[in-house]
Amino acid sequence: MSIAQFLTIFISAVFISNVILSRFLGLCSFVAISKETKPALAMSLAVMFVTTMSSIITWIIYRFLLIPFNLTYLRTISFILVIATFVQLVEMVIRKISPPMYRFFGIYLPLITVNCAVLGVAVLNIDMFFVGAKAVNGSFVYSTFQGICVGLGYTLAMLLMSGVRERLDLCNVPKALKDFPLAFIIASIMSLAFMGFNGFKF
């Protein structure tokens, strides 16, 4: 474990392999909810929370349940179930303890279950920080950190995109390109800009 390693994970997850702009995970929610800044931010915070927590939970399940019992082929099923249950749980808890918070991002929580970013980061953690059936040194901390960073990358892309799209409301955009098509073209240019970080080495 070293600072350089963490920094590399950070830059890679936020910029180079940005979860949306380069891995295309969570693209549906990205295009659908990035029309205005406020909901975009709420959705991003919810996603960040869930990616972090699900990174932790799926790591524990993989390491202490699936590997010892030789059930690694159940990875996909077990992860998606755990994530769905967890999201459901969070939704219930939030509704009980803080109605304002529930109103703020409660409606986005069910959407997160089928957000590829969450399952994506869980699977990615396993692919990156397990060699064979063994956890690499510091695997748990890296996984958690990667969960946070993927959430940050999602937030960054959402925030930029929502700002840009709010401004585009005032623009004279060609009719055929309105909304979805233009959102993809903007994402493409952002993705080109983020390529500046390619080959980052600290």
Partner: peptide
């Protein structure tokens, strides 16, 4: 620290997005 020797164009584009 990046892979490209020059970053000015990328930096300006990223800030354009912001």
């Amino acid at each position: 620290w990046g892979g490209y020797p020059e970053g000015a164009s990328y930096a300006i584009l990223m800030m354009n997005a912001a």
